[in-house]
Deep mutational scan, measured.
Amino acid sequence: GSLMYASIFGNVSAIIQRLYSGTARYHTQMLRVREFIRFHQIPNPLRQRLEEYFQHAWSYTNGIDMNAVLKGFPECLQADICLHLNRSLLQHCKPFRGATKGCLRALAMKFKTTHAPPGDTLVHAGDLLTALYFISRGSIEILRGDVVVAILGKNDIFGEPLNLYARPGKSNGDVRALTYCDLHKIHRDDLLEVLDMYPEFSDHFWSSLEITFNLRDTNMIPGSPGSTELEGGFSRQRKRKLSFRRRTDKDTEQPGEVSALGPGRAGAGPSSRGRPGGPWGESPSSGPSSPESSEDEGPGRSSSPLRLVPFSSPRPPGEPPGGEPLMEDCEKSSDTCNPLSGAFSGVSNIFSFWGDSRGRQYQELPRCPAPTPSLLNIPLSSPGRRPRGDVESRLDALQRQLNRLETRLSADMATVLQLLQRQMTLVPPAYSAVTTPGPGPTSTSPLLPVSPLPTLTLDSLSQVSQFMACEELPPGAPELPQEGPTRRLSLPGQLGALTSQPLHRHGSDPGS
């Protein structure tokens, strides 16, 4: 009898404990919600809404976190579960008819179910419309201010047509639940991603989709105040780019002037030289400038040598048109050559190039014969006009050509200096018209024969001689050997007369 009593008592207590286990969990969670309300000092109306929603959600799901349970299964099984949970929507909604099984599984994985109690606001006026909503159960109302403009029910759709707008718009009203509602919502990016994977279904979906109420604000059109608020930074940046392009296009129409201050000032006329910023005076940081632009901040801005204009002085008759350009485009679109090309026009420029290279940067340069637009006047290309890779490749080509020119210049200078040193070592320090008596009659020769300089066969020296023939050397430049009979510069000019005159010897006659 005691054994029977113990078994009955144990079973009854276990049954009672299981009955009250759900209630215990409910009270535990309710205590957490109330502690949250007390800690954050939530006001009474919002506090009442929180408690009511918790009670309804507990009775609806029995305190089970559906998302946590669903995430515990593998992905393939999750797709089947989501397809079952959203079967009513996918079967009865017209846009989803005719979709393949794979497309429906992908869509079912992207849908999220939302449960809303009465009085809950789903979308506020001015919120971004980031999702498309399908009503599965219940009814909602749409308000503009305090005026109800629409009441939607089961199988209705609200949001915005995503295929017509590249960016999400703003809501033009509040969406509030009238009863307990079940909503299926899919985010904008998720829907577009699935439709991109199934393009054959995309056309059918957009053609058959009928949005019951379009929440997009109709005033959000390009150029409206609301649109400016939504895309303020983007609009200002776009206007700045367009104004920069218009100014650079105007600059290219004036090829007669070359400016070292950047493309923003290349198009300024002579009357605007004294102004601080020219056409860019209202925004000094709008356009890029070269490193020399920092010198323009000092006094005497109108007389600054940074602004270059072609000189009108005539060229000498024998002067060549100019050196070879550094870039391939210089032959086609440049009416002034790079300062480095002028360094190779003569030997005198070679000796004085490194010492006063900055001073020569603004000297007169030889002109190319074609009066085409200036290379320095070409505006900086924006990322939309020329690819970045093209600019980098041009810079690399320019750097390689500069290296080759520097190597060639160093070799030419070394060769010229070597020839000058050899000339100085071969010439005796001094010569006299009267020579010392020699031991015999073989001493009648006034000077030792001097062998002429070897013929220069280097390509670089031939180019130097060509430049010497075309360029007029300055007075202080050293002379180079030329073709024809060679003669030492330090010898007297009348050596031929010395050989014809008898030598005057000093000596005593033994017979006297």
Rank of each mutant, 00 (worst) to 15 (best):
G267Q: 13
L242H: 07
R188S: 06
R422K: 06
R404D: 03
G287S: 14
Q361K: 05
Y431R: 15
L192P: 03
F234N: 11
C368Y: 10
L426R: 10
A131V: 05
R408Y: 03
T457P: 12
P279R: 15
E193D: 06
L426T: 13
P481L: 10
A166D: 12
P383K: 15
S235T: 11
Q466F: 03
L192K: 08
R388W: 15
G126K: 02
Q399H: 01
S313Q: 11
V149P: 01
I350K: 05
T499M: 14
P320K: 10
D296R: 12
S374N: 01
P387S: 12
D396I: 14
G159V: 02
G233H: 12
L419T: 10
S352I: 03
R422G: 06
G298H: 06
G256I: 13
G298V: 13
S290M: 13
C181A: 06
G298N: 03
P446K: 15
T372A: 12
P373W: 05
E229F: 08
P369T: 06
P255I: 14
G298S: 13
E331F: 07
L132M: 07
P485R: 07
S289A: 10
S208D: 14
E406K: 05
P475H: 12
G153L: 04
N349E: 10
E472Q: 08
S208F: 05
L503M: 15
Q363Y: 07
D156G: 04
A131K: 10
L458N: 04
P314L: 15
S293R: 05
G226A: 12
S460N: 13
G223C: 08
D249M: 06
L376S: 13
R240N: 07
G232M: 09
R394E: 04
V175I: 03
Y133F: 07
P305C: 13
D189C: 14
P379I: 03
S227F: 12
L395E: 13
M413H: 05
D459Q: 13
L183F: 11
P387Q: 04
A343E: 10
P454M: 09
G223W: 12
V149L: 13
V464F: 15
P429L: 11
I378P: 01
L376C: 07
D174L: 09
P263W: 06
G269V: 13
E160N: 01
G359K: 07
R400N: 15
R176Q: 04
E406G: 10
D356F: 07
P314R: 06
S285K: 11
K170R: 11
D396Q: 10
S303L: 11
P255N: 12
L420G: 05
S303R: 12
T425K: 03
R358W: 04
M197V: 09
L491P: 03
D296N: 15
A477D: 15
P310S: 15
S207P: 07
G298L: 05
Y180V: 04
R360W: 14
P270N: 12
T457C: 12
R137W: 03
F134N: 01
V427E: 05
T436S: 10
S374C: 08
P485H: 15
P168K: 10
A370S: 07
L178M: 12
N377A: 10
L461Q: 12
I211W: 02
P310A: 12
L461P: 10
P263C: 10
D190F: 01
P474K: 07
I186L: 09
I140K: 01
F467H: 14
F353K: 13
P441F: 09
A497M: 09
Q501S: 12
Q482C: 10
R505I: 10
S348I: 03
G359Q: 07
V450F: 08
S313C: 07
R273C: 13
A268P: 09
N377Y: 04
S171R: 01
T425I: 12
G507L: 11
V416A: 07
L420T: 06
N219A: 12
E257A: 08
P379T: 04
P510S: 05
P502N: 09
G256R: 08
D190A: 03
P310W: 02
